[in-house]
Design a protein around this nucleic acid. Structure first.
Lengths: 148, 148
DNA sequence: TAAAAGCTTGTAGCTGCTTCAGGGTCAAGG
DNA sequence: CCTTGACCCTGAAGCAGCTACAAGCTTTTA
């Protein structure tokens, strides 16, 4: 299987596959006599696994760890459990702040009722006022995203 | 006001302030005789405005546009309206996929009931199975994030 | 007086890709 | 036989939005 075929089979772009190889997430494939990469079934499965993890928004570093667990059975399962738990917590935290964000934006939009000049735009006024420190859900919370 | 004071006043890191200046989001401040940056009230307000927009996850390019609107009153308010509308749509889309993600992870976690070796880890099994194409909410949807 | 804190500039690093430049390989059509 | 086009190769740079150096100033504090 050449790289383009693997790409078509998994829906992953060719460049991304090469990137994963560089990052040592995907084992280096065999090579044909002309230098083209040659993949087997195990590559396809591994790539699908990686993409599934990525769909769960698991960072590549953690995917690497999971792949390590796959490689070495007999390890403590608690580590995996913890990894997923942490990921869930991260997602939930982001979900929360995104919901707050949605409310904010919806409220902001409500302010604009077809006035015509920006000088009178409720949205802009609101943004300025909020920046001035009036009651506002965004300000005050220490960090919203990239919450470490 | 020196840069450190502005940073303390707004909760924005010093490096970030200098970055905004480089990116022309913040007007170049005056300088003291020793070369230190010297900020006034208008800088503080502008910075607060930027941070407020960022808290709403509005990209810097759009913040730049909003700042332009602030500068030039008399423009059509519809543009602002549209910008916020688009932002709201973006946030809602991400919210949706994040909710799906949360369900997935919660389900995944449920699989792990204190077994001890990774070889028998329900989570890992599940991830592998899902990657194989069994029924799975993550796969099948074209794109989850960076949905263009 | 000396260390610590704060400022300056410029540059590189982070994540997870994506894109580009500059080539080689191969099958089909004229 | 030659060209066109699709595919492949490597290596490097670019994206957002910061963050973190390095190397050298000034100012404040002990």
């Amino acid at each position: 299987m050449r790289i383009g075929e693997l790409a078509a089979a998994t829906g992953v772009e060719v460049e991304t596959i090469r990137y994963y190889e560089r990052e040592k997430l995907l084992a280096p494939p065999g090579r044909q006599s002309n230098g083209y990469r040659s993949y087997g079934k195990q590559h396809l499965e591994r790539l699908a696994f990686i993409r599934h993890c990525r769909a769960l928004d698991i960072p590549l570093a953690d995917v690497r760890r999971l792949l390590g667990f796959l490689e070495a059975p007999g390890n403590d399962c608690g580590d995996i459990d913890q990894l997923i738990e942490a990921q869930l917590a991260k997602v939930r935290a982001r979900l929360q702040s995104m919901q707050a964000l949605e409310r904010q934006l919806a409220e902001l939009r409500r302010r604009c009722d077809a006035r015509h000049v920006t000088a009178e735009c409720g949205i802009l006024h609101e943004l300025v006022a909020a920046a001035h420190g009036e009651a506002c859900a965004c300000h005050g919370e220490p960090q919203k995203r990239g919450e470490k």
